[in-house]
């Protein structure tokens, strides 16, 4: 009984100290000069541009992720092909290496002096230091999420139902839409939410390839650091609240998914 109370108290204290306090501090500091200052800081053109770029990046990255993650999970779960095991390991690489190294790798390959970037240069195509570069590295750091969530569900849902649908006359697309997808909906949504959170919050990899052009290639995390280094503390924290709110939205979505999922499981 005593031990339980101590454990609970410890867990609570830890959460307050390391999670609630910092987040609360962001909001307190952001509103320290009053709501007017907060609004002014958030609607400042550079910050607005950063918000727009961050949301745009997520809107491009997450759908691509969903399609790629589904395709990879499907291939790995349903087919035996040379390189299957390699693919399984390869897809974890983005989780294993530091984002900043990922950024540097992309710069080396796709930058103006890299093999790919160099070849495209004469054609007037530039991949780094613009939206393309930001999207590419964001894709890299987020690519495991959807696949990792979907693969286990796809493996247990098995091929039998899909085969049954085929013998009943369903086309490949009908099998996917009517049989496969309903069995993996929740893992898919879950993976997409995680990928969104990561795409929005990514700093290291993006900072290498963004080029840091104010008002153009600054995502929200980069903008926050910039403002902070400029001693523009109120603006930095105001921008941080926006990022925190975006993150909270994904957290709430995640909570909703968690709440719905078991309910569905009970009546399959």
């Amino acid at each position: 009984m005593m031990a339980r109370a101590v454990l609970i108290a410890l867990a609570l204290a830890f959460s307050v100290l390391f999670i609630v306090l910092p987040v609360a501090a962001i909001f307190t500091r952001a509103f320290a000069d009053g709501p007017g200052a907060w609004i002014a800081a958030v609607t400042e053109p550079e910050t607005l541009a950063a918000i727009r770029l961050t949301v745009l990046t997520a809107l491009i990255v997450v759908p691509v992720n969903i399609v790629f993650g589904l395709a990879a999970a499907w291939a790995i779960a349903r087919f035996r092909f040379p390189g299957r095991r390699a693919l399984l390991v390869l897809i974890e690489v983005p989780f294993a290496i530091s984002p900043i190294i990922a950024g540097l790798c992309f710069l080396l390959v796709y930058g103006a002096y890299g093999p790919v970037g160099g070849a495209l240069q004469p054609l007037g195509i530039q991949l780094m230091f613009n939206l393309t570069g930001i999207v590419l590295v964001s894709l890299f750091v987020t690519c495991p999420f959807v696949m990792r969530e979907v693969l286990p569900a796809l493996s247990v849902s098995g091929e039998d139902e899909e085969h049954a649908a085929l013998t009943l006359g369903a086309s490949g697309w009908q099998v996917f839409r009517l049989v496969t997808l309903p069995n993996i909906t929740w893992p898919l949504v879950y993976g997409a939410i995680l990928a969104t959170a990561r795409a929005i919050g990514e700093f290291g990899a993006v900072s290498v390839v963004s080029g840091a052009i104010r008002g153009q290639t600054m995502t929200l995390p980069l903008q926050i650091e910039l403002l902070y280094n400029d001693y523009n503390t109120t603006a930095a924290f105001a921008a941080a609240t926006v990022l925190a709110l975006l993150a909270l939205v994904t957290l709430v979505l995640r909570g909703i998914v968690d709440a719905i999922q078991p309910a569905r499981g009970a009546t399959p």
Binding site: E161, L166, T167, L168, V179, P182, N183
Partner: peptide
Amino acid sequence: HAGARRFGMVFQSYALFRH
């Protein structure tokens, strides 16, 4: 292909659509 043959199949696991 399987669908065009119109052979009804009952699987060992039944393979009913769970959802």
